[in-house]
């Protein structure tokens, strides 16, 4: 099975993952910055497909990170994934973006049985989720995703750029203090779940916050 995975919940990233490829990965790319998704994502995917010699016909499914993440960036990945899936006529699945980092933690030597993953939610808040890990198993989402202040999170080791920003109040793992969700891990996680017959999400974005719109109050009358 060949999956094109896309995540733009923080940086822009995409990957071609397959259970036939060594280490499961055919090709991948990710950017450093979190504000140029509209420019870099499509050329990145285009190059990814060309370099791997893959066309839409070869792809079995498209997987998109559904956040949480800053809205505009998040939508660029989902809009891209939905359109590719529609044109290619291939199934589309969603994955919670923080799962990507949970798998990255699980595959590292820094793994612990109970941990948090956190990314920057701006406005002095983080997006976060809590995971548990048993040997040889995929990480299991125990709580979240949520958005909130770092100081209000459970007292557990925390991984990811959101933990790095608030290392004064979180038990941030220094090796992960600049890490962001990456489509590479998201795709691998999706592949493992599909292989295990577990359901995935649909592509509905997890905004976690309402739009800031205020319903205007009644106008104050003079007098």
């Amino acid at each position: 099975m060949l999956i094109l995975a896309i995540d733009t919940s923080a940086v822009a990233s995409a990957a071609l993952v397959s259970d036939d490829a060594p280490e499961g990965v055919l090709a991948s790319f990710s950017t450093e910055d979190t504000r140029s998704h509209a420019e870099v994502l499509a050329p990145g995917i285009d190059a990814l497909l060309a370099d791997a010699g893959v066309t839409g016909a070869d792809i079995d499914a498209v997987v998109t990170g559904v956040g949480p993440g800053p809205f505009t960036g998040l939508r660029s990945g989902i809009a891209t994934a939905r359109t590719l899936s529609y044109v290619w006529g291939k199934p589309l699945y969603g994955m919670m973006s923080l799962d990507a980092m949970a798998l990255e933690v699980a595959e590292s030597t820094a793994a612990v049985p109970e941990f948090l993953v956190a990314t920057d939610a701006r406005r002095k808040e983080v997006y976060w989720a809590r995971y548990s890990l048993t040997d040889g198993q995929l990480p299991r989402l125990v709580d979240g995703p949520h958005v909130g202040f770092a100081a209000d999170l459970p007292d557990l080791p925390a991984y990811g750029a959101g933990a790095g920003i608030y290392e004064d109040v979180l038990r941030a793992n220094p090796d992960f203090s600049a890490e962001q969700p990456d489509a590479l891990y998201l795709g691998q996680f999706a592949l493992a779940r599909l292989a295990a017959g577990e359901p995935l999400l649909d592509s509905t974005p997890l905004y976690l916050r309402e739009s800031d719109a205020q319903v205007p109050g009644p106008r104050k009358r003079a007098l």
Binding site: H37, A38, L41, A42, I45, D46, L49, G56, F71, T72, R75, S76, G77, A79, T80, A81, R82, T83, L84, V87, W88
Partner: peptide, 19 residues
């Protein structure tokens, strides 16, 4: 509107990549 334009542009680019 920047955020609104972004959706159409990303979708259009994906359409260009896929076709």
């Amino acid at each position: 509107l920047a955020g609104a334009l972004m959706v159409g542009v990303c979708a259009a680019k994906a359409l260009a990549v896929a076709t």
